[in-house]
Design a protein around this nucleic acid. Structure first.
Lengths: 224, 224
DNA sequence: CTGATTGCAATACGAGTGCATTGCAAAAGT
DNA sequence: ACTTTTGCAATGCACTCGTATTGCAATCAG
């Protein structure tokens, strides 16, 4: 074996450069040569580590997802053991919001990828299950709804019953929290992130909106 | 004046073709020649009506916004006079959700443009004011909050005080409805739309989530 | 030392891009 | 009838793109 080089490290280096380019100039400015220039390496090297551009894009996409997951896990770990579900939810969702400059960059890249993969229906299959797991996890944290009028639309019948593997913590099993509420909460976070990225909402407005909703879900009183 | 041709009609024809291409293959597949082929006209004609590609993109973007606005206005007009605020809100937000195939197409294009303009900070200035007007309009429809614990974050100081011109109806002036709740509601709609577009939520799940939230805001009882 | 394997650079190629230029036919003004 | 203006098509140009190919230096196995 000649010349030991850490392959995945090089790939990460290149993917980082890709994300820098994508965050600043958009995904359509991502080309082999641009990325190579941003990474300060030769274009040939990029080709050496990614045989095709699509392979590079796919890898970068996985890095983006990995990063946001790490962010969420770190924030939750900082909470200590057995936190109040409301605090846990707030921490989780806040960690996924593009509030500081670093996560704003990642958010821009993620948004670009969202539009990018919107046309390529492949490789979005796992996205579905991830979202469903997330909804399930959130639903488990919501307070049990007082039995209500209309029959609450339950989880869709095609939802996989597998336990969440990537969910950031040990989730209380499928608690009776309303699935529609959980889906709404997740979508709310996504929409807030979108508006923060677009600059329409300030981070303060977004967190205020999130808190207002959480207060409504949990009852305004119990803070910690 | 030779050869009378309706300029804006031609531009709309071309913009329609652009949106077809963008919806099916993404914005990066939008080129002069592709659009020309989709519109079944010569490439020279596209250049005749749009001197630059950016001009074409900008026009298409305006068409997208115009379409969604028309959709919302039509849905609201269908409600008749003096509807219940909850029904009005539900109708407005549902109309903006990509529930049928036509609006799904538009949604895909809008998402592509969102990522496209995320890098070009120009021409997003009006987007800010539009969103603020929308938030104000929604806030006016929300039931007055019982005076609460924490001082509710009011509208940001830099929010323009101009009356909404594009708002789909005559809005009750800045009613005391919580601005954070209105912002959350708008963001919720946006996030739901995103997930519906991505296929993670079915239209039924999205409307259920929206309804659950509206019920919570208005109190589950008063339906109509 | 020899030979093989690996890391990387450089170049070439065909395709596609946005845009400028040119040409020309049809209609309207005079 | 003649000129002018407009609508549109065609072509060319300089460039960037992704990928394939080639070459070579460094490194290790034998």
């Amino acid at each position: 074996m000649p010349k030991k080089v850490d392959h995945t490290e090089r790939r990460r280096l290149i993917a980082d450069a890709l994300m820098r380019v994508a965050a600043e100039q958009g995904l359509e400015a991502v080309s082999l040569r641009h990325v190579a220039a941003a990474a300060d390496v030769s274009a040939g090297m990029v080709q050496h580590y990614f045989r095709t551009k699509d392979e590079m894009m796919t890898f970068a996409l996985s890095v983006v997802k990995e990063r946001s997951q790490l962010r969420a896990e770190a924030a939750i770990a900082r909470l200590g053991d057995d936190p109040h579900p409301k605090d846990l939810l707030r921490t989780l969702l806040t960690a996924l919001l593009p509030l500081d400059e670093a996560s704003r960059e990642d958010g821009r890249v993620a948004l670009a990828f969202l539009a990018y993969t919107a046309v390529r229906p492949q490789a979005t299959a796992n996205l579905h299950t991830e979202t469903q797991q997330m909804v399930g996890f959130i639903a488990g944290l919501l307070p049990a709804a007082p039995e209500n009028a209309a029959a609450p639309q339950n989880a869709p019948p095609n939802a996989p019953e597998t336990a969440p593997q990537n969910a950031p913590e040990t989730a209380p099993q499928n608690a009776p929290g309303n699935a529609a509420d959980a889906a709404a909460l997740l979508a709310l976070m996504e929409g807030l992130g979108l508006y923060v990225l677009g600059g329409q909402y300030t981070p303060e407005q977004a967190t205020a909106a999130l808190d207002a909703h959480l207060d409504r879900l949990f009852g305004a009183g119990e803070k910690r």
